[in-house]
Simulated assay, not measured.
Amino acid sequence: MRADHAQLLGNRYRLISPLGRGGMGVVWRAHDGRLARDVAIKELRPSRHGELDVHAVRRRALREARSAARLSHPAIVTVHDLLEEDGRLWIVMELVEALTLQATAWHLGRLPVHWTAWIGFHLLSGLRHAHAAGVLHRDIKPGNVLLTGERVVLSDFGIATLRRDPGQGPHGPATMPVVGSPGYIAPERLGGHPATEAADLWSFGATLYFSVEGTPPPASGDGAAVRNLMSASRAGALTRLLEGLLQPDPARRLSGGDAAAMLSGILRTEGVAVPPMRLDGGGLFSSGAFTM
């Protein structure tokens, strides 16, 4: 049965209207009758049935839900519940009323350096929290960054993996294809290497580059190309940070801790007080938030 606005899931969640569609399904606005609140529900509905193993899709959905459910942080969308009805999996999540970074930058052309630094600081706090829990995102991009004016929220752990998932080998799933969004995939992953924290950080850097430039960074094969790229950019105080994050060699790439320290310094220079970045999800949002 196709989902419609009258459908009630789990005798609790009533679907209201679709919020967005992607290759793996539909995200719905729904109402939780038990707690009297609106939520977002991802309905896993593969668009290419003939090319996908239904059991593989369900395993991926369970992996997404379990990965995200491990995380509790204001910069990460919260997962509330997981249901299976009508032969589909439904992931119940916090509803975040927001624009994406992609839509915001497209509307404005590009974001100022100080806005981008503020977005980057809070986004990185959520990403480091995920990494500390053993979760890799693998698809960080402007369309997965939600901006409410007070919060920066990383969404869609749809291709997330657990570094220490017992079902994987020591180097990740042997048959996992390279998945992600063109322009935001780390060079080593395009070369066939597994996802790592460093690869997430490259995608994070590419997302910040998009924020200040309005376009993703072009492919660059070496460190000299990165320096040439940054010399022509509008990144200003973010230049050294982006150079470090966009290093093609993951061994030379900035760590999450070093990137956090650089972003804190940039924000303090801009007169924005930021608390120490904590990985337990507490005390991360400062009163110096920029209104967008």
Rank of each mutant, 00 (worst) to 15 (best):
R2T: 00
R2H: 01
R2S: 07
D4P: 02
H5L: 02
Q7M: 09
L8S: 03
G10R: 04
G10S: 00
N11I: 00
Y13C: 06
L19P: 06
G20A: 10
R21T: 14
G22T: 09
G22F: 03
M24K: 01
V27F: 00
V27D: 07
A30P: 06
A30S: 07
A36I: 01
R37Q: 14
R37I: 09
D38R: 11
A40G: 05
K42G: 03
K42N: 04
E43A: 13
S47K: 11
G50N: 05
E51L: 14
E51F: 12
L52G: 00
V57G: 00
R59Y: 01
L62A: 04
L62Q: 06
R63N: 04
A68L: 15
R70V: 02
L71V: 06
L71G: 10
S72Y: 08
H73N: 11
P74C: 06
P74Y: 06
A75H: 04
I76M: 08
I76H: 07
T78S: 14
V79E: 01
H80A: 04
D81I: 10
D81L: 02
L82C: 01
R88S: 15
L89G: 01
I91Y: 03
V92P: 11
L99E: 15
T100R: 07
L101E: 06
A105E: 06
A105W: 05
L108W: 08
L108H: 14
G109N: 04
R110V: 05
R110N: 03
P112V: 08
W115G: 05
W118H: 03
F121I: 06
H122A: 07
H122I: 08
L123M: 15
L124H: 10
G126C: 12
G126V: 12
G126H: 10
R128D: 11
H129G: 11
H131D: 10
V135D: 07
V135K: 08
L136H: 06
L136F: 11
H137R: 07
R138F: 09
D139C: 10
I140N: 06
L146F: 15
T148N: 10
V153F: 09
V153E: 08
V153C: 13
D156A: 11
G158A: 14
L162F: 14
R163N: 03
D165K: 12
P166G: 13
Q168P: 03
G169Y: 13
G169P: 11
G172V: 12
P173D: 15
T175G: 09
M176F: 13
V178G: 04
V178A: 13
G180F: 08
G180I: 07
A186L: 06
G191R: 15
A198W: 05
A198C: 08
A199C: 13
T207I: 13
Y209S: 12
V212G: 09
E213S: 15
G214V: 14
T215P: 01
P216C: 13
P217T: 04
S220D: 05
S220F: 15
G221Y: 07
A224S: 05
S231Q: 03
R234W: 00
A237F: 00
T239F: 01
R240I: 00
L242W: 00
L242R: 02
L245E: 08
P250H: 12
P250W: 11
R253A: 09
S255K: 05
G257C: 09
G257E: 15
A261F: 09
A261M: 11
L267F: 08
E270W: 04
P276Q: 04
G282K: 14
G283D: 15
L284Y: 01
F285E: 11
T291W: 09
T291F: 04
